[in-house]
Design a protein around this nucleic acid. Structure first.
Lengths: 131, 131
DNA sequence: CGTAAAACCTGTAGTCGCTACAGGAGCAAG
DNA sequence: CTTGCTCCTGTAGCGACTACAGGTTTTACG
């Protein structure tokens, strides 16, 4: 039965994070060896891998909790689809917002590169003198 | 002398947030009226507006602290430029990462829409059966 | 066999940028 | 006079970890 360090390496989730997931009830309390150390079975390892993949996709832990419930449930595809779609839309919105920021920042830093002696255009922009 | 509510409305920064900025030393401690209420002068209002604009551009408070120091300092343009450029690059990296996520999520949700009866492709993808 | 490093344990506090509350005081308008 | 607004202080909560402190046990090496 693998210890916490082994499933940490296998899943790519830090040991402390696994313990954190247990504390908040996202991972079940594992069996313990005689010496008190955590022993994980295949089911727990699979659950952790699932969480890891969902985190990589940017799902919040609350969403992952819901997805894990759906995973045991047949015919929950509609719910999963809704969750994933909402998440995708949130990502799209964030991309749009960041692109806007990037444009603004690029404009300012570029002006700055062109006029190296004048009053700093970045500071000026933030001061509101010429936004 | 404007009270906290007024500069809150004028700057678009919540009252609690202004007090929070004061607590962490980002805003100076303002003068107080006889009744103990905060009174802000034009300089404080300008500083708050500066912070607000920098926050809108996604700068972290630590960066804003640095920018505010630079704002008083002539010939700090190079420093400001470096800070802004690093921030812009971080935003670009985040956009790239989010686009990758968006592609992955779009693929999965699309498969899900096409096969409404089969085992949910979203759950399958996260389970690792067919990533 | 001794010892030192590595892995494990629990529990708590810190990160960031707020936000929300508890519990109160003061002030203006109807 | 009472209602409702703004203001005050102080503290706790969010999300998702991360980093200790202070301990035990296991493993590896000489």
């Amino acid at each position: 039965m693998p210890a916490i360090g082994e499933i940490s390496v296998r899943s790519g989730v830090h040991v402390e994070t696994i313990r954190y997931y247990e504390r908040i009830g996202l991972m079940p309390k594992p069996a313990r060896a005689a010496n008190g150390r955590r022993c994980y079975d295949a089911k727990a390892a699979a659950r952790l891998a699932f969480i890891r993949r969902a985190r990589d996709l940017g799902f919040a832990l609350a969403d992952i909790r819901a997805l894990l419930l759906l995973a045991d449930n047949k015919a929950a595809c509609r719910d999963a689809h809704g969750l994933a779609t909402r998440h995708r839309d949130a990502i799209r919105a964030k991309i749009t917002e960041l692109k806007r920021l990037e444009r603004l920042l690029s404009g300012t830093t570029e002006r700055c590169a062109r006029t190296p002696a004048a009053p700093c255009p970045i500071i000026e922009a933030l001061t509101g003198n010429a936004l």
